[in-house]
């Protein structure tokens, strides 16, 4: 039986208090935004809690919001296979110091996922055993998934964004 989101929110807010910034539910998955300093504490807490047992890391990925104050975001998807509950965590980081602690001490699978996030967004996972580029070439100097690198030639006139409502 999936754990209800109310119980999850209550557990996390009693444990972490003010560090939880925002909770919302979208399409059935609870999404929690928290301060980036406590990311490993949250993962450890969810991993070890006998009732929750979020022991499966589904995914880590980055997102870039160029208009926000904290531009970079790391998204964790966790899955508790015992209770069949999914949960999503977001940690927002500033562009000039995008550092967050590595999750490799909790999940071995975080290794390449974090390397991928570093490769595309330049998010630095402190304490990672081997943080280097994984899919792009080693001597690349930019972080290509950031929004300042448009995919198409900006000089093309036939595909202006304003014609597409964007």
């Amino acid at each position: 039986m999936p754990i209800s989101n109310e119980i999850l929110i209550e557990k996390l807010t009693t444990k972490f208090g003010e560090n939880i910034i925002k909770t919302e539910e979208q399409y059935g998955i609870l999404c929690i935004t928290a301060k980036p300093t406590i990311n490993i504490d949250i993962l450890h807490f969810l991993y070890d809690d006998t009732e929750l047992q979020f022991q499966f890391l589904t995914d880590i990925c980055g997102v870039h919001y160029p208009d926000e104050l904290l531009q970079l975001c790391v998204v964790y998807h966790l899955h508790s296979l015992v209770t069949n509950t999914r949960i999503r965590f977001k940690f927002y980081l500033p562009l000039d110091k995008p550092e967050i602690k590595t999750a490799t001490s909790v999940y071995a699978s975080a290794n390449w996922m974090e390397r991928e996030t570093f490769d595309f967004y330049g998010i630095i996972f402190t304490g990672h055993p081997n943080l280097k580029r994984i899919l792009n070439v080693d001597d690349m100097t930019v972080y290509p998934m950031r929004k300042e690198y448009p995919l198409e030639d900006p000089n093309r006139v036939d595909k202006k964004d304003l014609f597409f409502g964007r």
């Binding site: 589904t58 990925c61 998204v75 998807h77």
Partner: peptide, 26 residues
């Protein structure tokens, strides 16, 4: 897995593929 963030525009704002091979090959 497909993680899709939509900002209401004509394209996804962000689309991330959770690729099983990538994760277990490590």
């Amino acid at each position: 897995g497909f993680y899709l963030i939509s900002d209401g525009g004509r394209t996804p704002y962000r689309l991330h593929f959770r690729r099983p091979s990538f994760i277990y090959y490590q």
